[in-house]
Amino acid sequence: MRHVIHALLLLVALMPIAARASALHDAVGAASLSRVEELIASGEAIDTKDSLGRTPLLLATELNHIEIARALIVAGADVNAKDSKLDSPYLYAGAEGRLDILKLTLEHGADLRSTNRYGGTALIPAAERGHVEVVRTLIAAGVDVDHVNKLGWTALLEAILLSNGGPAHQEIVRQLIAAGASLNLADREGVTPLRHAQNKDFQPIAAMLLEAGAR
């Protein structure tokens, strides 16, 4: 009997994360807006966290369930609540290009100064990953375009260093220049955005930087 109990306890410990989360997490995972609304109306704790530290809103953001995210945010879910990886609905939406949810978080108290586990704002990974409209939205919202993360990189540096230099990243560099990003803010090795662009043979980006006065 003791062995059976031990086996059952082990099985519970190995159950999927969703099984150890709240009913609201389960409803989000099932993409059931009606169930989410029902649970909100019944007074279910809206910012409870699962075993990864995710709130239902963060899970909805990860799954890109826009209307569910809207319902949770309108009901007062914390758009800045971080999980064990230091992601929040706002930061995750920015990094992963979830534009609709990002806009909702900005309308409901997103902390523009909050940073992810790399010490970067939402703008930096958005610039790296080529999310043009997200970058535009974050710049308009007032995110610091010259914030430096733990790697010593700004959004402008990441848009060059970690990209393929294609049209999306060219447009992002154009936006950052227009927003007044510091063109000569170098990385920890003293290499400037212009030098990185030249080293990678990103000619359109290098030309933009030179025209804007980069050195």
Rank of each mutant, 00 (worst) to 15 (best):
L161Q: 14
E44L: 09
A45I: 10
A71D: 00
I5L: 14
E211A: 13
L86S: 11
A181G: 03
L156V: 00
P56I: 15
L10N: 09
E128P: 01
G97I: 10
E133P: 04
T48F: 10
M208L: 14
L14R: 11
P167Q: 14
K150G: 07
L176W: 01
A122I: 11
H25M: 11
P56H: 08
A95T: 09
A122Q: 12
L91M: 13
G97S: 10
L210Q: 15
A212L: 08
L59Y: 07
S32R: 12
A214D: 10
M1A: 15
R129F: 09
Q170C: 07
R20H: 08
I172M: 04
R117V: 12
E158P: 01
V143M: 02
V79A: 06
V79I: 12
H65W: 12
I160T: 02
Q175D: 06
H25K: 10
A214K: 13
S163M: 07
T137S: 07
D146E: 05
G180T: 08
P167D: 15
Y118W: 14
A95E: 09
A23M: 11
L99H: 04
S114N: 12
I101A: 05
V134A: 00
G29R: 15
A41Y: 00
A179F: 00
A212R: 13
R20G: 02
H3V: 13
D87T: 08
L151W: 13
P204W: 03
S51W: 09
L138R: 03
A141I: 05
R117W: 12
K200Y: 13
L194E: 01
A159N: 12
V28H: 01
R35M: 05
E44V: 07
L210E: 15
P193E: 15
L194H: 02
R195A: 12
A141D: 01
A60N: 07
A60D: 06
H169R: 09
L8G: 05
A168T: 11
N164A: 14
L99W: 02
R54D: 05
W153E: 08
V191L: 15
R129V: 03
A41R: 09
V143E: 08
R195F: 04
